[in-house]
Amino acid sequence: MELTTVWFVLIALLWTGYLVLEGFDFGVGMLLLPLSRDADKAVTQTDRRLMINTIGPVWDGNEVWLLVAGGATFAAFPEWYATLFSGFYLALLLILLALIVRGVAFEYRGKIDDPRWRARWDLAITVGSWVPALLWGVAFGNIVAGVPIDADHHFTGTLWTLLNPYALLAGLTTVTLFLLHGAVFLALKTDGPMRERAGRAAAGIAPVTLVVAAAFAVWTQLAHGKTWTWAAVVVAALGLVGTVAATRQRREGLAFLLTTVVIVAAVVLLFGSLFPDVMPSTTDPAFSLTTENASSTPYTLKVMTWVAVVLTPFVLAYQGWTYWVFRQRLTSTHVEGTTGLAPLARR
């Protein structure tokens, strides 16, 4: 296998890790406001702190996958990186701003013991989760479907070019899938009333996700897929059907495993449909960026491969250890008397 193909697969794996791990982070953030209300629709700060602390030890580590995926794309396929970031500049800037605001909100919401102060940062967490969840889907939809690229590999479209029906359906798919992934994660990581509330939310979101994701997967396969990517469509469909059943039975562990499988299958479908292109051109197929004409030199790819082989096991081991340490369920008793993430982390 050529190193260009190896690095295409490795970048797909990095995006898989990011979407699986950051996917439930986004889901928890999107559900922060609706699930932190009691039976009388009153806001409960304890529940909000509980939800945030389920992802508190891991959210920033999950974002490392995005940094590595971006860095790997820059180093392995600089032409792809340049065209992607210049053409999708505004959308990627919005994602970056949302992630920055979201990260600041996690750290600052508990600095002042004032309900209005916390409410503003909670809103920032919610918006900072919805925006990337939507725009990542829109971006991947456009990458797979293709965008106008000229002979010099310059993007010649506008922002409105990116807001086409297929890409918007892709964005809606990532939103619903991350909502489901996050609700299942909350049910898995909490106990008591929050576990019950998250379980009901997951059971309600699952059928909607099934319909939306099925429509997107079939459209992708028929318009851009290859014969072998039907396997990814079937796996995703079975995973979603299983998730609907698992959420109704409140089997959180199985449901989380199945939503993870669905996200993995979705990445396989997208990258499998894309290969050997990395960015198809709708202007002329001859102008498309491929794994060959967008890659770095063979020497660069060889050095990168050795670095990845040596360092990746350490990174995976450390992150796995983090999840193991913080594997226990949380209840309201873990956060009572605290005002944010930092006090619980210290305790």
Rank of each mutant, 00 (worst) to 15 (best):
V262M: 02
W230L: 14
F271I: 07
P276I: 14
G242Y: 03
G239R: 04
E252W: 13
S281Q: 05
F275T: 12
L274E: 04
P280E: 08
L258G: 05
L257Q: 12
D284L: 15
A246D: 11
D284N: 15
L257E: 01
A266F: 13
G225K: 03
V264C: 09
A265F: 03
L240D: 05
L270P: 00
V233Y: 05
R248V: 11
T227C: 01
H224R: 08
G272E: 08
T243A: 15
P276F: 13
L274G: 05
T243M: 02
A246L: 12
G272C: 10
F271P: 01
G253M: 00
G225V: 11
A237E: 05
V261N: 04
T260N: 11
A246E: 08
F275Q: 13
R250I: 00
S281L: 09
V234A: 15
R250G: 01
L270E: 12
A265D: 01
R250A: 11
L274A: 05
G272H: 02
K226D: 11
H224I: 14
A231S: 14
L254K: 09
D284M: 14
L274V: 06
V233L: 10
S273L: 11
D284C: 15
V264R: 02
V241N: 04
G272L: 02
L269C: 05
T283N: 13
S273I: 09
T229K: 01
A237P: 03
L254R: 13
G253L: 00
M279T: 02
T259F: 06
A245L: 15
A231P: 07
I263Y: 04
G225H: 03
V267I: 14
D277P: 01
R251K: 02
F275A: 15
T282Y: 10
V234R: 11
T259C: 11
V235N: 09
A255Y: 03
T227Q: 12
G272D: 10
W228F: 15
W228Q: 12
A266S: 13
A236F: 03
V234E: 06
P280T: 02
S273M: 09
S281Y: 09
F256G: 11
T247C: 09
T259D: 10
A231R: 11
A245C: 00
F256M: 13
T283H: 13
L258H: 05
A236T: 02
V267L: 14
L269V: 06
I263T: 12
T227I: 11
W230E: 05
V235R: 08
F256K: 07
L240R: 00
